[in-house]
Amino acid sequence: MRRQCLFLTLSSLGLGLGACGSLDNEPFRAGTVRGRLTEFDPAVALVSVIGAPGVRASVDAQGRFTLEDVPAGPAELFVVATEDKAARVPLTVQGGQSVDVPDVAPRPAGSFFVKLHTQGSPRVTDAKASVDGTPIDATQLDDRAPRRLGPLPDGCYGLSVSAPGFISTAVQGCVDEGKQTALNVELVPEEGFAEEGCARTGCDDDSHCALDGHCVECLDTIHCESSEVCNGFRCEETIP
């Protein structure tokens, strides 16, 4: 009896392992979204999905767009129609199927006005900024000239900024229709970057890089006003 029970148990396990066929859900993990923009500039019009900026499509001459391989489930379209108009469209993507969204009427867009600052005197060059989850980004940013990032439909976004020698930073900001929102982003130098000296990081416009790697007011009298002389890396009034 015991042997029979053992045999039965082992047979069951053996048979259990011997399954055949397979079930495939892969085709149903993404779907297609179709729609049309009522107003658009073919040169800049772009449709993507928030959170999946790699899924994007342009529009045809009639403003129609088709987004494929959109992850199934709740999603939100990020629509850039013209330089200053955009929209966000929430929807649910049905796996393996197409979803037709009603005609999308873009609204006046807002934008971020990004100013970069640093802790200390190092210069920021060649920085990159991107609005999280969207295709909106900018390169070659520095701490001299603020840059506009947009157009952005009304809403709140995360902004990620990175620059060589600085710790990547993320900030949050919200934009309103047709308005520009200033975002002051302070970048923190990476450990050791500042210590490498101004020969690598540079100095701001009012200072000069000394041989010891520090930014100083002057190295020579020519760096001072005409009535001043450079004395001990500082510009001083000449005493008659």
């Binding site: 066929g21 297609t32 393996g96």
Partner: peptide, 12 residues
């Protein structure tokens, strides 16, 4: 739209 067909599976 993305898939039309059958899938079969058998197990003990």
């Amino acid at each position: 739209e993305a898939y039309s067909g059958g899938q079969r599976y058998f197990t003990v």
